[in-house]
Amino acid sequence: MVAFVISRLLQALPVLLVVALVSFALFTFVGDPVAAMLSQDATLADRENLIRLLGLDQPWYVQFWKFVGNALQGEFGLSYRLSRPVSALIAERAPATLELAFCAAAMTLCIGVPLGIFTGIYKDSWVSRVLLTVSLVGVSLPIFVLGMLLILVFAVQLGWLPSFGRGDTVQIGWWSSGLLTVSGLKALILPAITLAVFQLTLITRLVRAEMLEVLRTDYIKFARARGLSNRAINFGHALKNTLVPVITIAGLQLGGIIAFAIVTETVFQWPGMGFLFIQSVGAADIPVMAAYLLLISLVFVVINLGVDLLYYLVDPRLRAQR
């Protein structure tokens, strides 16, 4: 078990290094930060000075080495746009994105999995048919359209929920939480729904397909022939056998929700990392973009590790092979 975790971590290292190299390459190939940071009437000497200050006169591998060293300490330099440490910017924005992402993920799993089970077991009932048709809409509706529709109906016309921002937040240490205030919770509803709908319909359809597959197997038939209750068969024997693919996809989805909340955050002006990223792209703010890239790859690596550990718990056949 421990050996498995360590080997997985070692495998993750090259992935992170490659991503680091890509984000580092951004500095060299995208835009000219020096030109961006200097004022118009700066002299050539000012320019030389700044280049030396930023370490841009060194060979690229030295720069890369420094970059990795700094990144390991959570140090990503100054934002070109805001002239503040990137790490502070991200730490400030991360809680908003993470709260949004986990709410959306919780919604996805808590609604999507039961719906998938239901439509898998009662595949021919009209409720299932309606749900599946609606889920098609969910799969095919672009996120930004959905977000704007929700704003139009619930914020503009009904006026029940705010259309942008995060509401009031409470500071707990460095973490700013919107989950503890009424306005924070209200502000969370629409973006979370927007972010969850696509993932939810996807997970519903996945669980359904897996359930249909598993319910056809011999061991389910045998479980019925042994006289087990429907509940034990559907929720014990069948559901557990659908879990491995569902965990895989759910893990990827969680990563996707965190990383690509960009559209939702933009639509709702949500002060999270995705919104920060979009603003940074507009301003060619390389340090922020690089840090964001690295952070997201780290998120995926961690989630995949978690997914692998869950496999390990669910399926005894995988345990034997280690």
């Binding site: 011999d218 061991y219 479980a223 399926d315």
Partner: peptide, 12 residues
């Protein structure tokens, strides 16, 4: 049933 490889639930 016929095939003992598939009649037992692999996860229990």
């Amino acid at each position: 049933f016929q095939d003992p490889l598939t009649t037992l639930n692999p996860l229990y």
